[in-house]
Design a protein around this nucleic acid. Structure first.
Length: 242
DNA sequence: AACGGAATCAACCGCAGCGAC
DNA sequence: GGTCGCTGCGGTTGATTCCGT
């Protein structure tokens, strides 16, 4: 089901991701977030292009991604959203927290396209019966509508509330932490890396400033050499121990 | 049991949009 | 206003699995 691994002319790996690669990417983003997808694989020690890393994270490794069968309600909503949005899969994904655009797209092509074709009226029927979940009535916050439309286990609901970017790695690590929360909670959880959290790239925008000027081939900015690599390796060991 | 076509889904590719300079 | 780099999106591909014969 997955493409066999191979290397392109630039030495970048393509094809299926190994568990080791997944672990590296997950651990890296858990620690540092995805401050720059293009540079990320270099610092994470991956022979992948940034695009591939981003896709793997967004569609597979991201903690808020729900894997598993689609419920009848989800199917109906996808049918209806397809009527509203067409092939705007990312817009549809926003209304289906935990499902990725790629996943919805695949599911549409493999399951729902035929259903929609054989019963073109279905979307309209669904629209009437599920008017409370129509885009116009949906909250701007995906997580809010999720908890109403599709009750999720508490853990999933809280995860869905923190959907992307720099928050994901914190959620993944089980911190139940969101951006607005105090840094203190993180510091107390991860005592050994408190310097990391107080360094410049703690703040979203500072990621770029702190990292974008790196010299090619330099693994970490000099002032992060110890904390960065050592703690990254430590993180990997911690994960393996779990 | 063996084969072939259909179904599935992770991953790739190319392009558009956006912000920075 | 033009160019460049980066990100995200939608369409497509291809390896694997499933299922009927």
């Amino acid at each position: 089901m997955v493409r066999s691994p191979r290397f392109d002319k630039n030495g970048l790996k393509k094809g299926a991701w190994s568990k080791e690669e997944d672990d590296k990417l997950r651990a890296y983003i858990q620690r540092y977030g995805h401050w720059n997808w293009r540079q990320l694989p270099k610092f994470a020690g991956l022979s992948r292009c940034g695009k591939s890393c981003r896709l793997r994270w967004m569609n597979y490794l991201r903690p808020s991604v729900i894997r598993g069968n689609y419920s009848k309600e989800e199917e109906d909503l996808i049918l209806k959203l397809h009527g509203d949005f067409g092939t705007k899969w990312s817009a549809m994904a926003e209304k289906l927290p935990g499902r990725t655009d790629n996943e919805i797209k695949n599911y549409w092509h493999t399951h729902l396209k035929k259903r929609a074709k054989s019963n073109p009226q279905e979307g309209q029927v669904i629209e009437q019966s599920t008017s409370e979940t129509s885009p116009e009535n949906l909250s701007d916050s995906p997580s809010e509508q999720t908890s109403e439309s599709y009750p999720l286990p508490a853990e999933q609901t809280s995860r869905a509330a923190v959907s992307s970017s720099y928050c994901d790695y914190a959620v993944f690590s089980g911190l139940n932490w969101v951006a607005e929360d105090s840094i203190n909670s993180v510091e107390s959880f991860y005592e050994p890396i408190q310097n990391f959290w107080t360094e410049p790239f703690l703040v979203d925008t500072s990621f770029n400033h702190a990292w974008s000027d790196l010299v090619e081939g330099e693994i970490m900015p000099s002032y992060y050499h110890y904390d960065g690599i050592e703690l990254f390796n430590q993180s990997m060991q911690e994960m393996e121990a779990i």
